[in-house]
C-alpha cells in the first residue's frame, strides 16, 4: 500500500499540488484522473522520487520514502516499476537488453537465467520473439508493452504508469489496459495509473482519485463515480462520452 500524506509541491511561487492525501491499495488498479495540467504527472513524479515534494510524505508500506537514506531509498526503488508516457526505452539497447537492464544491475543471475526471465516478461506482455530489435524498429504500442516488460523484470511491488494508452488506437489501448489489470492481479502489486481515458476507468479501475487544481477533489470506488454528487467530477465525466 502506498500512502500520500499532505503532499505539497510548488515551482517558484506557483503551487501545483495543494495538499494531497490518498491511499493506494495493494493488488488493485488505482486510477488517477483529472484534466490536463492539474498535476497528475507531478504527483506521480513526487511519488517515485523524480521530484521532491515541498512538504508532506510518501509512505510505501510503512517506509517513509521522502525521508529515507540513499541506501534504503535504493532498496525501495528496486521494488518500483514505471511505464513512462513516452516509454523512455533506452534507445541504444535492444529490446532484450532493455528488459534485462535491471536484472544485470541488481541481481546475480547468470546470463541464461536472465535470458529466461526476459523471455518470461516479454511473454507476459505478449511480445515474444522481438528480443534483438531496437526501440526505433518497433511501433508505439509495442514500445509500451516492452516498457511494461522492463518495469516488471525485477519482482516489483509497485507499478506506475503515466498515461499508458495515450497515442494508441482503441484496440491496442484495451490490450494494454487488460495487460495492466492482469499483471496487477497475478503478481499482487500496487498499480497506479494516470489517465484521461474514461473507458480505462470503467474497464479496469478499482479505486479512483480525481485531481482538480492540485487537490484531491474526490476519491472512491469506480462504481460510485457516477453517483458521487460532486459537481466538478460529474462535469468531467459528462465531458467524456461515458455517462
Amino acid at each position: 500500500m502506498i500512502e500520500l500524506k499532505d503532499i505539497h509541491k510548488s515551482f517558484g511561487d506557483v503551487e501545483i499540488l495543494k495538499g494531497i492525501n490518498a491511499k493506494f491499495e495493494t493488488g488493485k488498479v488505482n486510477l488517477v484522473i483529472g484534466s490536463s495540467g492539474h498535476g497528475k504527472s507531478i504527483m506521480m513524479k513526487c511519488m517515485v522520487g523524480l521530484e521532491t515534494p515541498t512538504s508532506g510524505s510518501v509512505i510505501y508500506d510503512n517506509r517513509d520514502f521522502t525521508h529515507l537514506e540513499y541506501r534504503q531509498l535504493r532498496e525501495v526503488r528496486k521494488e518500483i516499476g514505471m511505464l513512462f508516457q513516452g516509454t523512455a526505452l533506452f534507445d541504444s539497447l535492444t529490446v532484450e537488453q532493455n528488459v534485462e537492464f535491471t536484472l544485470k544491475m541488481f541481481t546475480n543471475m547468470t546470463p541464461a537465467e536472465r535470458k529466461d526471465r526476459v523471455d518470461f516478461c516479454l511473454e507476459q506482455v505478449d511480445m515474444p520473439g522481438i528480443n534483438q530489435k531496437f526501440p526505433s524498429e518497433i511501433s508505439g504500442g509495442m514500445k509500451k508493452r516492452v516498457g511494461i516488460a522492463r518495469a516488471i523484470a525485477l519482482d516489483i511491488k509497485y507499478l506506475f504508469c503515466d498515461e499508458p494508452n495515450s497515442g494508441l488506437d482503441p484496440v491496442t489501448s484495451r490490450l494494454i489496459d487488460e495487460l495492466l489489470k492482469s499483471i496487477t492481479e497475478e503478481f499482487k502489486i500496487t498499480t497506479i495509473i494516470n489517465t484521461h481515458d474514461m473507458k480505462t476507468v470503467f474497464d479496469i479501475g478499482d479505486d479512483v482519485i480525481f485531481i482538480y487544481e492540485g487537490n484531491n477533489e474526490w476519491s472512491g470506488k469506480v462504481k460510485d463515480i457516477k453517483t458521487s454528487g460532486n459537481e466538478i467530477l460529474t462535469r468531467f465525466i459528462e465531458a467524456s462520452q461515458f455517462h
Binding site: V48, G49, L50, L73, R74, E75, V76, R77, K78, I80, M82, F84, Q85, G86, A88, L89, F90, D91, F101, T102, M105, F106, F160
Partner: peptide, 17 residues
C-alpha cells in the same frame, strides 16, 4: 541530452541507479 529529454535518465533514476 537526448536521454534527458526522452525521460531515459528519469527511468534510470526510478530504477535506483
Amino acid at each position: 541530452g537526448t536521454m534527458r529529454v526522452s525521460e531515459q535518465i528519469d527511468a534510470l533514476e526510478v530504477m535506483g541507479i
